[in-house]
Amino acid sequence: MLAKLLKYDFKAMFKIFLPLWGVLLVVSGINRLFTGAGLDAEQGLGLVNSLMVLLYVLLIVAVMVVTTVIIIARFYQGLLKDEGYLMFTIPVKPWQLVASKLISAVVISMLSVLVAIVSVLIIASYQGFFYDLTQVWEVLARMTPNANGLAILSVVSVFVGLICAVSQVYASMALGHLAGSHRVGFAVLAFIVLSMAWSTVGTVIGLFGYPDVTTSLTTVTVESEAAQVMSVFSDVMGTALIWGLVLDVVRCVVHLIITNYILSRRLNLE
């Protein structure tokens, strides 16, 4: 059933995002042509060129804004408003509805970021770009102990952080749903309260959880040998990433439990 739910969620999302992504890539292509042709203001194309750059920047912003707005709207309109009358009377469990929204939101966000990266590459890449990129990475990897581990950890952290952010938005909307009226206002309030609560938890863990960070930072300033600095940097980064990751996983679980409880037991569509 989850696969079927995903089919419709992706269909709805792609109807909006495929044209948007397409336009962004086409505009990057046009920008590339302008830069590549070496046209300048004297040839009378300066204005068009500037407008294209402006359009490109606006489109990048639009992709990010639309991604955020659609993720919120798909959950709010799709489950908590009139469409909920259909979604909550089909024979699926509420957690499957939430999972479908979450998975589609995370995949669409990642695709939006990927399209943005590709668009930058279209404009800025040059012959041998990827070779240079690997060179930079090799230098970094030589300097930093456990570079590969840190890189993988960073990617996982970003991924979990994304799930965490989306699930916090869902939990906030679910909490707002408990209010009889002004549900959007209460959802915003719930989001702020959740953010403050988690940042407090993070600070407390920071104080008691990994005291070696402070020691390490002292070491960094005292012994400024480059190799040692990088080794300490790697340790500190690793510890911080792992703690951050653990906290984010806990946050996701809490958000999803709240959301699932409210949608299963406390649902009250207007």
Binding site: K11, A12, K15, G78, E83, Y85, L86, T89, P91, K93
Partner: peptide
């Protein structure tokens, strides 16, 4: 629950259609 929803046909007093 899931078992009854598969066999109960419900017509709400409002429109549940998705725009797309």
């Amino acid at each position: 629950g899931v078992e009854t929803k598969a066999h109960v046909s419900y017509l709400p007093d409002r429109m549940y259609f998705a725009d797309w």
